[in-house]
């Protein structure tokens, strides 16, 4: 757990130090805190897996609450399932993940759009197993077996750089480039998970990725 706190402390410190660098005014504005928008989003990038990673089915959604069009509290939730059929085994996994964090908007000219950075704390719980495992053993012939169902938890941190633009009234389109650093869990020297829901390739400690979201801004407190 100390390692987790160390990562969180490092990230928070980083954002506290970096945030003033993105300010465009020398005089900080004394705006009162107010909620400027609530967006509900759906990760549409995950639909690309139907074409490029057909063994995976996953869904993710998000809620973000904007404060002064500058800071956004973000919560994401998702589900991922793997059905992988190989020549010598079949592999199954499923699990859910959630992420919570903050985004910081660096745009001043178009304050309802977004160009900024963010960070997330993320956690997943998932289980996996394999069956129809066939191994050829010389004179012994073929050996067919299966594994028990194994449960895992994993925690990781994400930093992102992204954009979000209003395409239509209250409808936003955005993407962000992500770097994900696993802090804990999701490793098994005997039966390594194929994929960690929300994190990606379980063999890596650091994964790069991208999110593609479409958002609907709830018409709330908006002129």
């Amino acid at each position: 757990m100390m390692a987790i706190y160390k990562y969180i402390f490092s990230l928070v410190t980083f954002f506290i130090l970096v945030t003033p660098l993105f300010s465009q005014d020398t005089e900080p504005e004394k705006e009162p805190w107010k909620i400027t928008g609530i967006k509900a989003g759906m990760d549409i990038g995950r639909f690309s897996s139907y074409l490029f990673k057909p063994e995976q089915t996953s869904y993710a959604g998000s809620i973000d609450i904007g404060f002064n069009n500058k800071y956004y509290a973000v919560f994401e939730y998702g589900y991922s399932e793997i059905n992988l059929e190989k020549d010598t085994y079949n592999y199954y996994s499923n699990g859910t993940f959630w992420k919570v964090g903050l985004d910081y908007n660096m745009l001043k000219k178009y304050p309802t759009d977004f160009l900024g950075v963010g960070f997330r704390f993320a956690q997943t719980s998932f289980e996996h197993f394999a069956d129809d495992i066939t191994i050829s053993y010389g004179h012994w012939g073929n050996y067919t077996t299966s594994t028990p169902v194994v449960s895992h938890n994993a925690i990781w941190l994400e930093a992102s750089l992204g954009v979000k633009g209003e395409l239509f009234k209250n409808v936003y389109f955005g993407w962000s480039a992500l770097i994900k650093v696993r802090v804990n869990g999701g490793k098994d020297s005997v039966f390594q998970p194929y994929d960690i829901p929300g994190f990606g390739n379980a063999a890596n400690t650091i994964n790069l990725g991208a999110n593609y979201f479409i958002y609907y801004q709830i018409p709330f407190n908006r002129k």
Partner: peptide, 13 residues
């Protein structure tokens, strides 16, 4: 308002 954002999005995708 930001066609550049859309192009950037498609390229990254």
């Amino acid at each position: 308002k930001n066609p550049l954002i859309i192009c950037f999005f498609l390229l990254a995708f």
